[in-house]
Measured scan of single mutants.
Amino acid sequence: DEETLERIAKELKEKGWTLIVNGKLITDAREALKWLLEEEERR
């Protein structure tokens, strides 16, 4: 759910983690959240 996604995005940002999505590096939590939401919609 959205709360979980926001928590994940926040944790990613705090830890300075990066996500690699389709070979693209995502360092911004907002971008990561946007991607996660798009993935949820596809299901």
Score class of each variant (00 low, 15 high):
26 I>Y: 07
20 I>L: 12
10 K>H: 09
36 L>N: 00
39 E>Y: 13
19 L>Q: 02
11 E>S: 06
6 E>T: 06
36 L>F: 08
26 I>N: 01
10 K>N: 12
12 L>T: 01
31 E>S: 04
11 E>L: 15
15 K>Q: 10
34 K>W: 05
11 E>C: 15
21 V>S: 05
24 K>F: 13
9 A>I: 15
42 R>V: 09
41 E>V: 12
29 A>K: 02
38 E>S: 07
34 K>H: 04
36 L>Q: 01
6 E>P: 01
21 V>K: 02
6 E>R: 13
17 W>F: 09
14 E>G: 02
2 E>I: 13
1 D>E: 11
3 E>G: 14
14 E>C: 09
14 E>Q: 03
43 R>H: 09
42 R>K: 09
33 L>H: 01
30 R>Q: 13
23 G>H: 02
1 D>N: 10
32 A>R: 00
5 L>A: 04
34 K>M: 13
16 G>T: 09
23 G>S: 02
42 R>I: 09
2 E>N: 09
3 E>R: 10
43 R>L: 11
25 L>I: 08
17 W>P: 01
18 T>V: 15
18 T>K: 12
16 G>Y: 07
17 W>N: 02
18 T>Y: 08
41 E>D: 12
21 V>I: 14
26 I>K: 00
9 A>H: 11
21 V>C: 14
12 L>G: 01
8 I>A: 02
24 K>P: 04
14 E>I: 03
6 E>A: 10
4 T>Y: 12
7 R>W: 14
35 W>L: 05
16 G>N: 06
36 L>I: 08
23 G>Q: 02
19 L>D: 01
37 L>E: 02
32 A>N: 00
8 I>R: 05
37 L>A: 04
31 E>W: 05
22 N>T: 02
5 L>E: 04
19 L>W: 05
19 L>Y: 08
32 A>T: 03
5 L>F: 06
12 L>S: 00
30 R>L: 13
40 E>G: 09
24 K>N: 08
7 R>Q: 10
16 G>V: 08
2 E>S: 09
10 K>E: 08
42 R>N: 06
43 R>I: 12
2 E>V: 11
10 K>Q: 13
23 G>M: 04
42 R>F: 06
23 G>W: 12
33 L>K: 00
17 W>K: 02
27 T>K: 04
7 R>C: 15
18 T>A: 11
38 E>R: 06
16 G>D: 02
5 L>V: 06
3 E>H: 10
30 R>A: 12
13 K>E: 14
12 L>K: 00
35 W>F: 09
29 A>Y: 13
20 I>R: 00
29 A>L: 14
34 K>Q: 12
9 A>L: 15
9 A>S: 06
40 E>A: 11
31 E>L: 06
26 I>W: 12
38 E>I: 08
6 E>K: 08
2 E>H: 13
4 T>M: 14
25 L>H: 07
19 L>G: 03
28 D>G: 03
8 I>K: 00
21 V>M: 06
41 E>R: 11
5 L>W: 13
34 K>G: 05
10 K>R: 11
43 R>M: 09
33 L>Q: 01
15 K>W: 14
29 A>T: 08
21 V>W: 08
11 E>M: 15
8 I>D: 01
28 D>E: 04
15 K>R: 11
29 A>Q: 04
3 E>Q: 09
24 K>T: 11
39 E>F: 14
34 K>F: 09
21 V>G: 07
38 E>L: 10
38 E>W: 10
12 L>H: 00
43 R>Y: 07
34 K>I: 11
40 E>T: 10
12 L>A: 03
37 L>P: 00
8 I>S: 00
16 G>M: 09
8 I>Q: 02
36 L>C: 14
3 E>D: 12
43 R>V: 07
18 T>M: 11
7 R>F: 09
31 E>A: 09
22 N>Q: 02
42 R>E: 03
7 R>T: 07
19 L>T: 04
9 A>R: 12
26 I>G: 01
22 N>A: 09
3 E>F: 12
5 L>P: 00
9 A>P: 01
8 I>L: 14
35 W>K: 01
22 N>F: 13
10 K>F: 12
17 W>S: 01
36 L>R: 00
31 E>T: 03
23 G>V: 05
16 G>K: 09
39 E>T: 07
27 T>Y: 08
20 I>N: 04
30 R>E: 11
26 I>H: 02
42 R>P: 05
11 E>H: 08
34 K>P: 00
32 A>E: 02
24 K>D: 10
4 T>I: 14
13 K>F: 15
13 K>Q: 14
42 R>H: 07
